[in-house]
Simulated scan of single mutants.
Amino acid sequence: MPEQLTKHPEVTLQVLRSAGAKCAENAPQAILTQCPAERFCKLPGGEICVYGLPQARNMTQITAADWRALLQSLDNKTGSSALGADGLAGAGIGITAGLLAALAFRRARR
């Protein structure tokens, strides 16, 4: 049975409930026994454990080696760390340029 990682676990739980899943109702956990009760959903076809990003380290099906491989694949794809200073600096420059362009446009309209 899968563990799911999402940026929006409460929304995911709500969607599962709307499809008939019993979530956070202390349903018996046959397979995902380490899933926190408030993140556990039972469906007719199986079980799901929904984790938010802050709880990712508690997942049991994804190992530290899996996370390292994922980060390495992101580094290789972007040419630098996806979470590194280069990316943040680039975003800052882009935001600053956009603000300056908006200010220049606003002044030109006056």
Rank of each mutant, 00 (worst) to 15 (best):
R17Y: 03
D86S: 14
G45R: 14
G45Y: 12
N58F: 13
Q61H: 06
L13E: 05
P9K: 05
P36L: 10
G20I: 14
R17P: 13
A69K: 14
Q55D: 10
A108I: 13
A65Q: 12
A30M: 05
A21D: 00
T63V: 15
A64P: 09
L70H: 12
G92K: 08
A19L: 09
D75W: 14
K42V: 02
K42N: 04
F40L: 04
A97Q: 06
Q14E: 04
A89Q: 11
A97L: 11
E3H: 10
Q34E: 05
Y51A: 02
G52T: 09
G52I: 11
A56W: 07
I95S: 04
C35L: 08
A69Y: 11
C23M: 08
K77S: 07
T63A: 14
A37C: 01
A64E: 04
N58E: 04
R39L: 03
F40A: 04
W67L: 11
T12N: 00
A89C: 03
P54K: 05
N58V: 00
A108V: 11
G98D: 03
C23Y: 00
N76E: 09
N58K: 13
G46Y: 09
L88E: 07
T96H: 10
A64I: 13
A27T: 09
P54F: 10
L16K: 10
S80D: 07
C23Q: 01
C49T: 02
G52V: 08
C23R: 01
P54E: 05
K22F: 14
F40Q: 05
Q61K: 07
K7Q: 08
V11Q: 01
V15R: 03
G45V: 13
I48S: 02
L100N: 07
D75Q: 15
G98C: 00
A37S: 07
G92N: 04
L74T: 11
Q55G: 14
